[in-house]
Amino acid sequence: MTAYEKLQAGASVRQETLYHPVEGSYTTKVATKNVTVHYGDKSALNGVSIEIPACTVTSFIGPSGCGKSTFLRSINRMNDTIDNARVSGSILIDGEEVNDRNVDPVVLRARVGMVFQKPNPFPKTIYENVAYGPRIHGLAADKDQLDAIVETSLRKAGLWDEVADRLDQPGTSLSGGQQQRLVIARAIAVNPEVILMDEPCSALDPIATARIEELIDELRENYTLIIVTHSMAQAARVSQMTAFFHLGSLVEYGPTEEIFTNPRDQRTQDYITGRFG
């Protein structure tokens, strides 16, 4: 039984599921049930239930203010850092409740990495940026191990060849696209299971974007990726699953091909064909 099936079986409030089961052998990594987020009195997300398969790229699309970023941020409990945000509902990662009181958000965020819209390297050297996570979580026993982690992470992020000879320079000295890959390397360094990306290419030029998209495709082998994007072409290029959000609700979710070629919902079709958004 998948985590999602467990959830559905135990849930008292039944929502119409929008999930089209995918053919194949995916296992579920993240499953949510009825996730609702309020900012003060304003509701930003109402009752989202979704099941995200492991080792795939899932993209969230939808017009601005539709709640996709809010939903993304509730998966690693980043909404905790916002004073008046309230999250309810259930979010399971490998069947484990994220919002449980016993879950330490600090540990959770090591398991669920995040990459932001604007590259945000710390005011440290390139090396220290990547070593930051392993350091604060005590992942490396000695300097050699740390060096190894830094190198592996930079290699996975496709940045090693460009920065190997200037690891001691500030992270901010890199170009925008390099900074974004540095930030991805920083996220990989703590060996997360899930990587959340909030419009990771919106501040980059087309060449840097192509580079990041390639990288996302490579990372799929080891990590579960969830990306929020405004570019439907990007969603079509990099993701296997696509979810369409509108006005705080999940409208349609399914294999990317299906969503883009044969959407079931009129609103999805309108959005994809550019009629609103």
Binding site: N76, M78, T81, V106, V107, L108, R109, A110, G113, M114, F116, Q117, K118, N120, P121, F122, P123, Y132, G133, I136, H137, V183, R186, A187, V190
Partner: peptide, 19 residues
């Protein structure tokens, strides 16, 4: 975004402030 970056790496508040 810098604070968010630190929190997303699993830093506590005082770690984010200090580091």
């Amino acid at each position: 975004s810098l604070r968010d970056g630190a929190y997303a790496m699993g830093a506590t508040k005082s770690e984010a402030v200090r580091h």
